[in-house]
Design a protein around this nucleic acid. Structure first.
Length: 123
DNA sequence: CTTGAGCGG
């Protein structure tokens, strides 16, 4: 009686952006210099803990770094420590901007709310 | 040979 707005079949993706960083172990590192690579970031962030994922986004056209990347830690404490330690600090001449990454993944094709999934489902 | 806020595949 209370849930009048409950849809029978809402097709959401497994990972959707709720607006808050659900990945407390994933860090969004921006403000990187264009000379910084993944190995340098991994080496720099491996000091704070065990880095499980280091991904620097490169340009698809020129092939150079976009200036931001992602660093994932094996523990949330390490990620929080690294963020608290390296965020706002300068890395390779440029001030680093670190924040908790959003759950962006290739398996997340944006939320697709099927409001009409009742019976009629033709491709 | 370039640029500088940001959230990727």
């Amino acid at each position: 009686m209370l849930l009048r707005f409950s849809r029978p079949s809402l097709l959401y993706s497994r990972t959707f952006c709720t607006g808050n960083p659900s990945s407390d172990s994933k860090l969004f590192v921006a403000g990187l210099s264009w000379a910084v690579d993944e190995r340098s970031l991994k080496d720099a962030f491996s000091f704070f803990g065990d880095v499980t994922e280091v991904r620097i986004m490169y340009d698809k056209n020129s092939g150079r770094s976009r200036g931001f990347g992602f660093v994932s830690f094996s523990r949330t404490d390490e990620a929080r420590s690294a963020k608290d330690a390296m965020d706002g600090k300068a890395f390779m001449g440029r001030p680093l901007k670190i924040s908790f990454a959003l759950e962006k993944s290739r398996d997340a094709p944006v939320v697709v709310p099927r409001l009409s999934t009742s019976g009629d489902s033709n491709s």
